[in-house]
Simulated assay, not measured.
Amino acid sequence: MHVLITGANGFVGQALTKHILSQGYVGKGKVSRLTLLDRQFDEVVNSSMLGLVVEQHSGDLADDQWLKDSLGRFPMDVIYHLASIPGGMAEKNDELGRSVNLDATMTLLEICKAQTQSIGRKPVLVFASSIAVFGTMPDLVTDDTPLKPQMSYGAHKIVGEVMINDFSRRGWVDGRSLRLPGVLARPPAETGQLSAFLSDIIRELSQGHTFVCPMSAQAKTWASSLPNIIENLLHGAAVEESKLKATRTFTLPTLCFSMAEMVDAIGSVYQQNANELVSYEPNPMIESLFGRFPPLETPSADDVGFKHDGDLNTLVERALLK
């Protein structure tokens, strides 16, 4: 099995790569070749002892010729399309956001189409969409909730979902779009993600450091641990296509909680007096984007086996696992 990961040097991409290299399987398929794409890599993967071929290609995903040249030599079986320009960065640089989030996705779909038409080998494409597609939300979010994105990033993800559905309908790719919630806990870095504070609060309070939260104690959000997201991505490629007839777009099950509840969980898991360490200074823009999340129901995802962390203490505990 040949597996491709775009955005392989990112937070989720590195964790997915590490898992595949350690286990050697995606679902029941044994991985023989792993291709990793990103703008650059923090380290070179030494595959000599892994029993599979690993290739790392550094370049610009918006360069369609580079993308075609990097992927044109070996047929692909499973594609994880994780690469994107996230919310804050896409707002600041519209051209960059569109070139990566839209143009590169379309180029990747065309590569899948060409492979299917030339050799009859239809790849599975797992697309990392986002809950940013919802934007303004009603009192309850379900599979039928209208999409009203507040940022270009969310709009880009909707376009990706629609085109993956259409290419799947036409038999050119076996696509699955997974709407990821906030993923915890990201390492401290300048990524352009406005939700970085959700990771920072766990890391700082767990170490007994003070933290200023940019949302109110009552603000509610959604999030999952990184291990939970990796489990769902792996499951996303393993689900049989026959089970995807009703929909190919899934809002992943995730936990809904207030910031006060998260602080209590951090205190409980890491034995810190977290309530004395945190202060709340709400930023209206941050709270409007990440702090007004309603309850969530995900029957379509539940039916095909996607899962959340189970409870908030488990999420907090798993969030800092190496």
Rank of each mutant, 00 (worst) to 15 (best):
residue 236 G to V: 04
residue 203 R to T: 15
residue 230 I to E: 00
residue 211 F to M: 12
residue 216 S to W: 00
residue 213 C to E: 11
residue 239 V to Q: 04
residue 233 L to D: 02
residue 241 E to R: 14
residue 229 I to E: 01
residue 220 K to E: 14
residue 203 R to S: 10
residue 228 N to E: 12
residue 222 W to N: 07
residue 211 F to C: 04
residue 243 K to M: 08
residue 209 H to R: 06
residue 216 S to G: 13
residue 222 W to Q: 15
residue 210 T to A: 07
residue 210 T to N: 07
residue 214 P to L: 06
residue 219 A to T: 04
residue 227 P to G: 02
residue 231 E to T: 14
residue 220 K to P: 12
residue 240 E to H: 15
residue 214 P to N: 06
residue 222 W to M: 06
residue 221 T to V: 13
residue 237 A to R: 10
residue 228 N to D: 10
residue 203 R to C: 15
residue 239 V to G: 02
residue 222 W to V: 07
residue 210 T to E: 15
residue 217 A to D: 06
residue 228 N to Q: 15
residue 210 T to C: 11
residue 235 H to F: 06
residue 208 G to S: 04
residue 215 M to I: 08
residue 206 S to Y: 00
residue 239 V to S: 04
residue 212 V to K: 15
residue 218 Q to K: 09
residue 218 Q to H: 10
residue 216 S to A: 07
residue 217 A to H: 02
residue 244 L to E: 00
residue 242 S to Q: 12
residue 217 A to R: 05
residue 216 S to T: 06
residue 206 S to M: 03
residue 241 E to T: 12
residue 227 P to I: 02
residue 221 T to F: 07
residue 224 S to I: 07
residue 219 A to F: 05
residue 238 A to R: 09
residue 223 A to L: 02
residue 212 V to D: 12
residue 233 L to S: 04
residue 236 G to Y: 01
residue 213 C to A: 09
residue 224 S to K: 06
residue 219 A to L: 02
residue 226 L to N: 08
residue 226 L to Q: 11
residue 215 M to E: 10
residue 210 T to M: 11
residue 244 L to A: 03
residue 224 S to V: 09
residue 244 L to M: 06
residue 231 E to D: 11
residue 237 A to W: 00
residue 229 I to Y: 03
residue 244 L to D: 05
residue 222 W to C: 07
residue 215 M to N: 06
